[in-house]
């Protein structure tokens, strides 16, 4: 029985690890400026964790194999040195790993979430609601009109609760269902939730951030390649949660300028 356990556990360990190593299923290619940091940190951690995983499972398998030895006269033996080497090993090995991960990991985190956005960022307002995202550009005046929850109206497509009648800055605001951004330009999103929690997740951009009702949450990133990707909601928001999505379209700066001009003309 001990040999069987050892063999089964070894097979499980090898197959599980192989699928990770061969990247049968893996992250989509990164298209963001900060993404390589995250990917690097993820791979580093995965290697470290993978080594620990394989070592502990194989040690378990090996010892179980040997402990099934039924030969007469075999005495039980104590782990060499008792518990002390284990404690020392765990504190030194795992501790060193933790130190390294925290040190590098915090730098990655800080570089993404604790740095102020580029002052030159393109600012876009995002409204999440059950079960859609809407994006708002300030229009030619460069200023966002203020939002009034009581004016929000799905039927008249006033998703942000704008008051163009009394608010001149709101008149030229551009509201679209697709996030359209220029490539290689810092983007600053300000996240608002209309009703409940939502989240903004674009795997290719390596960003995920909750929308929290009552809070305005900034989120900044730079896309490095043109293309079209899905934005999905990852915070449970109700029955249509699985179906809540939008697209982010990354285009060249000239294309973007043209697109924006066209939209402004429609207002």
């Amino acid at each position: 029985m001990g040999k069987l356990f050892a063999i089964v556990l070894t097979i499980i360990t090898v197959v599980s690890t192989a699928i990770f190593v061969m990247r049968v299923w893996w992250l989509p290619a990164d298209v963001s400026a900060h993404g390589p940091w995250i990917d690097h940190q993820l791979v580093e951690t995965m290697v470290a964790a993978g080594v620990l995983f394989v070592l502990s499972q194989l040690a378990l398998a090996l010892f179980v194999w040997k402990s099934g030895d039924r030969r007469e006269g075999r005495k039980i033996t104590v782990f060499p040195g008792g518990a002390v080497p284990i404690v020392v090993l765990a504190i030194v090995l795992v501790g060193a790993e933790i130190l390294a991960l925290t040190f590098v990991g915090s730098k990655v985190w800080a570089s993404i979430y604790q740095t102020p956005p580029d002052p030159n960022s393109l600012q876009i307002d995002v409204q999440a609601e059950q079960f859609a995202f809407y994006f708002r550009y300030p229009g030619p005046d460069g200023r966002f009109g203020s939002s009034h929850p009581e004016l929000i109206n799905e039927a008249t497509e006033n998703y942000f609760g704008l008051d163009p009648a009394n608010d001149t800055t709101a008149r030229d605001d551009i509201v679209v269902p697709t996030l359209t951004i220029p490539v290689n330009r810092p983007i600053l999103l300000t996240l608002h939730a209309k009703d409940v929690n939502h989240a903004f997740y674009v795997p290719e951009l390596r960003i995920q951030q909750d929308f929290v009702p009552g809070l305005v949450i900034p989120l900044h990133f730079t896309a490095t390649e043109t293309g079209k990707h899905e934005i999905v909601c990852t915070q449970l928001c109700g029955l249509g949660h699985y179906n809540m999505r939008a697209y982010v379209e990354v285009m060249r700066q000239d294309q973007f300028d043209q697109w924006l001009k066209g939209k402004a003309a429609q207002q």
Partner: peptide, 28 residues
């Protein structure tokens, strides 16, 4: 014995999720 094995398997992925920078991708 199974407990030890599955606890290791489950615990070790905590290394990834404990780091905010990686959790940004893997969260939810």
């Amino acid at each position: 014995l199974g407990f030890v094995s599955v606890f290791v398997s489950g615990g070790i992925s905590g290394f990834l999720l404990a780091q905010p920078s990686i959790d940004t991708y893997l969260h939810a």
